[in-house]
Nucleic acid binder design. Sequence first.
RNA 1: GCAUUUUUAGCUCAGUUGGAUAGAGCAACAGCCUUCUAAGUUGUCGGUCAUAGGUUUGAAUCCUAUAAAAUGUACCA
Length: 594
Amino acid sequence: MITNYNKHFDPILSSFLSDEYSVTIDSFEFQLTRKEFEGDITLVVFSLLSHVKIRPEDLAEKIGHYLIQNHEAVIRFNVVKGFLNLLLADKFYLNQFKEILTKPNYGHHIVTKNSPTLMVEFSSPNTNKPLHLGHIRNNLLGYSVAKILEANGKNVVKTQIINDRGIHICKSMLAWKKFGNGETPKSSGLKGDQLVGKYYIKFDKEYKNEIAYLVSNGQIEKEAKKNAPLLIEAQGLLLLWENNDPSTLDLWKKMNQWVYDGFELTYNDLGVSFDSYYYESETYLLGKNIIKKGLANNVFYKKEDGSVWVDLIEEGLDEKLLLRADGTSVYMTQDLGTAQKRFEDEPLLSGMVYTVGNEQDYHFKVLFLILKKLGYDWADDLHHLSYGMVDLPSGKMKSREGKVVDADDLISEMTAEAKNISESVGKLDSLDEDVRQLMYKKIALGALKYFILKVDPKKKILFDPEASIDFSGNTGPFIQYTHARIRTLIQKSNLDLEVFSSSIALDERERNIIKQISRYPEAIELAGDQYSPAVIANFIYDLVKSYNTFYQNVSILASKDDNLKSFRIALSRKVADIISSGCDLLGIESPDLM
RNA sequence: GCAUUUUUAGCUCAGUUGGAUAGAGCAACAGCCUUCUAAGUUGUCGGUCAUAGGUUUGAAUCCUAUAAAAUGUACCA
């Protein structure tokens, strides 16, 4: 179904049906005509039959005749079963195109101070290990969705909650203390997050050794896992941290800072950024006041041992623990508190989007339900942007075991590959060395981002490091390349003004392009409704395909007719603008040269 | 066991929310660079839309059952 023709045809169809059959229908269903039939758009007549009791062919025929006589855009029609195919005048498309040209930020809704504010949370890393491919998907998705929501007229606050405390952080701290010999990012030349990650892996290795040793001395594995000295020591460190032990806090701050510095570099490479930050070390005690409130309202209840629970069995879920018997909070408690805090921090906030993997579908279902039960009016405006895992052929990535596709490694490998390919096809040779290096990176990231964003978020991605990511076909570089080609074409055209009259006979390919670009606003809205960059990616790809067949078959600059040439350049420019805009929504750069 | 999600060409994915004869890329094969950039383009090959029922004028799309896979299943975060 398409909607951008409704404003042109709904009124006239509506009045026809009311005059002829005394029925009131004010919206009609159109679709693009299949290429094996003559026509541009197709009115699907079937859905009208419940109101008008005649054969679909007859109704279609009548409507067709009426439109020819009463709507200047319709020049021919044919009827196949219940489908009324309408052929529209070139002038209609030219006018449509001219209308598009007058809208500077075509497809984007304007954001004002009064627009609703949304918080989009993504990234949310642990500070004990570097980012891997799974985090890349999270970052790209969150960032792109934030952009898409902006394009849909929302004020967006991009935020992340940093998981900077807990036993896992203490593990890497302890390993560094014991085995690090004072190693720093400076002394080792390692990126800070890589360095800390190294000690997280080191901990796991030594810990496993200890378990093996204990088991060989007769302990059961389950016991050995609890009794290993390293684990006990790490737990001790967590206790010291919670009691604000100065030297522990110092080490914690120092190592976290290394990680933040390292992450910053990776975020820069990925081109993502944030407007605000939340730290779990500051929020992990929040939420207890909500528990009190819930108890007072009988939304929650207390068990004999003093633990607090919520009963969601009526909603088809389970009972969920909110506060342990000893009064300490759990993950859910924190999230309740953090949500509330954010609405206090941002007075204009009207909703939130959580970019978190589908492992936590259940958690967010429960979280949102509890907030709703507690009566927060914003509880209906929370959305869990759930996405599938990125798996390796060998299974799940496990950073403890070092079985990951490291984000930094992947980016540098792809940059090297972009360089290889550029050199072998002889592109970019004219550029300076440093500009060229930047270009390789833009192309590499274009490939990576598109590879990830073009698939529906909820589907899992299987990434084969052996196969690597393509640079030709349905890929980011293909889109970037088409964009660059159009930009140089425009430059070579040397036209000061792209003004043209409406007396042009359009080529079928040109009509197709106009049809496609006129649907860009729909695509942006759909992407926003579905929180799915894939919608944009696929839209842009289709447009690029259409433009390429046009480009391949029409010598644009060779045209003797200035009017036609102006039109074609204007069309090309609009296509380039939309590609560029779409890439921007995906966080992909679209260089003018390539 | 229960819950959620996924299943479309050899591989990776689309499929405009129920419309006509299901589309791309990769891979394989055959063409197109003296013409605006060949990371391109034209064509060939490739389909029991997991399976079986149902609803409907019409189903890859909605419902039910079955199968396979992934994830979750509460005092980890």
